[in-house]
Simulated assay, not measured.
Amino acid sequence: MGYTQPEQWHEHYARGERFRAVTDTERALLETHLRPAAAATALDVGCGLGELALHLCQMGYAVDAVDYAESAIGLATAAAPADAKVHFLHHDIERDSLSALPQAIYDLITFRLAYAFMTNRTWLLNRLREHLRPGGAVCIITPLADTVAAGRRGIALAEEEITLTTAGWRSAERFDADGLLFLVLREPGTAATACADKGRPAPQALAGAGVVVTDAQDRVLLGWSVRRGVWELPGGKPLAGEALEHTAVRELHEETGLQASADDAQVLAFLTDATHGIPRLTAAVRVTAHHGEPAVREPHLILRWEWHSVADLPRLATALFTPSAHVLETVWPGLFSSLPPVHRHFVRQLPRSEEPSPQRETDRCSPRRSPAREAR
């Protein structure tokens, strides 16, 4: 399903179209693993017509159910029993401020057939865990990529993406729900970010550019390496005779689809270190203006691109490519408490202070809506 805008989902529900109903197996798993022992609150993300939200209400939760399709919220509200403790809210969980949610803290947060359509999943889970009561749980019910047709992979998660989702949680229980993955996450962890290289390169000197680009919420773009299992900045090797500013914008476009001018690319510093005994030179490049939306252009290299809050980077649950960490530390000095050795040769100072804020990101998220997002 190729929907990319909330209006398309609004029309989907308005036409009377539906999705797979909650099964008895799902209800049994919810009863077994997530029934509250006392009064509790739940947040159902991507609630659609509210079937799961109403079942959670029957289990004993007071439920806030959100969806960015206005027609879904209208239909769910009209169909809900008058005495149901469920509040349906028109809300874009990725674009609207989480401070607008009715509750500050939830005992359970659910995504049913919705999580695969979230654009910046790592960032979103980091924000939602700030709204999860100690002892609470996140439940994700989703198709798996190897169980759906190739043309429908966008509605499902691959195993590599499940690994990314469970990273940073001390407890991750998996169950089968009639072919759907039923995933329960508990106890978010706080381990410091580890740095990792990608293995031994070809025996030659290495040179490249690491590109720092941020969005309107001052989040930085990172990609998950398919083969190496690390987060990394956009970037790559210069072509023969190519200026590094041109390298930066070319690689940014080739890898992510984002477009920028070389006039908006600034080489801040040259970083020198070594890997496996081979000298390595990395140009730290800051791109200050761009347009477009990030997309996976080289799927054999990068699984997905996500915007990350800078304040989250010192506590990533998965590894960060060492040169990318050095470049990020150049843009935001003092971001990491410790890094592998590197020599920095500064070319220019940053045009303005770019210090990550330690405050909760949910308290300063912009309510701005995006004109486009992946289909749900």
Rank of each mutant, 00 (worst) to 15 (best):
T330H: 03
H55G: 02
L180G: 01
Y13T: 02
L157F: 03
V249C: 08
T4D: 06
T119L: 05
S338A: 15
S225G: 03
A150F: 11
L98S: 01
L316M: 13
R250T: 12
P323A: 12
A172N: 06
G46Y: 01
F88Q: 03
E161S: 12
L281Q: 14
P238D: 11
Q58S: 14
T4G: 10
A172L: 07
W224Q: 00
G208D: 07
P371R: 10
A137S: 15
G135M: 08
H290T: 08
K198E: 13
D67W: 07
T122C: 04
P203N: 09
H246M: 06
D107M: 04
H308F: 13
L313M: 08
F321L: 12
L281K: 14
L164E: 03
P341V: 01
Q259K: 15
L101I: 09
W169H: 12
L108F: 05
I105M: 12
E26S: 04
E232L: 15
T272E: 13
G60I: 09
I140Y: 03
Y3A: 10
L29G: 02
G257E: 03
T4M: 07
V347L: 12
R121N: 01
E298G: 04
T122P: 00
Q359L: 11
R348M: 10
H12T: 04
F336W: 02
R35M: 07
A284Y: 07
L281P: 01
G74N: 13
E355K: 14
R129S: 09
F111M: 07
L183V: 12
E70R: 15
Y61F: 14
P143C: 01
A265K: 08
A325G: 15
S357V: 05
V138C: 09
T256K: 03
Q8K: 05
A37Q: 14
Y61L: 04
K85P: 01
R95T: 05
A194V: 09
G257D: 03
M59A: 11
L101R: 04
I140D: 00
D146Q: 15
L113E: 02
P314M: 06
H300T: 13
V213R: 02
E374R: 14
E11Y: 04
L181Q: 05
H300Q: 13
A202V: 13
A21N: 05
V249F: 11
E354N: 10
A311G: 08
G257P: 06
D64L: 05
Y3V: 05
P238L: 13
P314R: 03
G210H: 07
L303Q: 11
T32Y: 02
E70Q: 15
G135K: 10
I140A: 04
L29M: 07
A319W: 00
D363E: 07
R200P: 08
L271I: 15
V267H: 12
